[in-house]
Design a protein around this nucleic acid. Structure first.
Length: 310
DNA sequence: CGCCAGGGTGTGA
DNA sequence: TCACACCATGGC
């Protein structure tokens, strides 16, 4: 059941009320679930030991889906809360992109095997993918909110924003929240966001990002028109509040550039400190020299290194 | 209580 | 270009 609007590489089929999406050999649902379960304060989906439930906003409808895996050869998507979709292709596309199923990560594993740092642990996380943030506004907002604060507090800020300005689908007495659209944020006042305990600066950055997206002065499609990572980084860092870290974070988790590299990331520094069994975090010059060996797979190297922290 | 947190901007040399 | 102050709040 292929569709002309979907990447023909996506293999999927409709099976009764569920959708089945075939996964590559280098994919482990369990490994990705572990990543998704890292915060008890996550508000955009529910990840348990064997399934994920989340709401999705498509063009003309909102659905609530449950994702499970069968034999690690396919993902199975079911519609909950009576939200059977008419936009099945869009659901398949979202899930495919979220799990980064379109990337052949075998070259990364070949590279990691010979890497002095990566070879020690990458095999422990076999099948882990860079879990994405397909929505550009959500990715930018998450990046901005996460600047210079600990991750636990970042999750709290996200929850406050979502529960104040987002929408939800109810199922079994639980609310499944959707990240607010740019139009729900763009017209707010700074005060509306500082009330959530974001700093004044972050509030400005977030409002500005919402306005750019709302007015189509920035879009995922536009950013994906070039495949030059440095060029897109330049476009993003021209935006006030988006520096090298946020730009590369978005390049990695939303725009899916495999060679994006948030070198200023404190988590990455701590991961390397742990991986190298050092007492101090490595300095930037040293990290640069490590990353030379990661070539076109810096984002995957970073994501696997992060896994050492939890 | 003190240190640090998945940074970014603005300033001054 | 590069160091440095400042932002400002919470987790631990």
């Amino acid at each position: 059941m292929q569709n002309q609007f979907l990447d023909p590489a996506i293999k999927w089929e409709e099976n009764g009320e569920s959708l089945k999406i075939y996964t590559p050999k280098e994919f482990s649902f369990r490994q990705n679930l572990k990543y998704l379960s890292r915060s008890p304060n996550e508000c955009l989906f529910e990840a348990t030991e064997d399934k994920i439930i989340r709401a999705l906003s498509l063009h003309n409808e909102t659905v609530l889906i449950e994702i499970t895996a069968e034999n690690d050869t396919m993902l199975v998507v079911r519609f909950l809360a009576d939200t059977a979709s008419r936009e099945k292709e869009a659901v398949v596309k979202y899930v495919y992109e979220w799990f980064d199923l379109g990337t052949d990560i075998r070259p990364f594993y070949d590279l990691a095997k010979r890497d002095p740092i990566l070879h020690n642990f990458v095999h422990h996380f076999f099948g882990l993918r860079i879990m994405g943030i397909p929505d550009l506004f959500e990715a930018l907002a998450w990046g901005i909110m996460g600047q210079q604060i600990n991750l636990a507090f970042a999750y709290t800020l996200k929850r406050r924003l979502v529960e104040k300005f987002g929408t939800f689908v109810e199922h079994d007495g639980r609310k499944y929240w959707l990240f607010p659209k740019p139009e729900a944020i763009a017209h707010l006042q700074i005060k509306d966001l500082t009330e959530l305990k974001m700093t004044g600066r972050k509030s400005e950055y977030l409002l500005n990002a919402a306005k750019l997206l709302l007015h189509d002065e920035l879009s995922k499609e536009q950013l994906l028109q070039t495949n030059n990572v440095k060029e897109v980084e330049k476009i993003l860092t021209k935006i006030r509040g988006i520096g090298p870290w946020t730009a590369n974070y978005v390049l990695m988790r939303c725009l899916r550039f495999p060679n994006a590299f948030p070198i200023d990331d404190v988590g990455l520094h701590n991961s390397l400190k742990l991986a190298l069994e050092r007492d101090e975090k490595p300095v930037k010059e040293e990290i640069l020299s490590f990353s030379e060996g990661w070539a076109e797979w810096k984002s995957y190297a970073t994501f696997y290194l992060w896994r050492l922290l939890y």
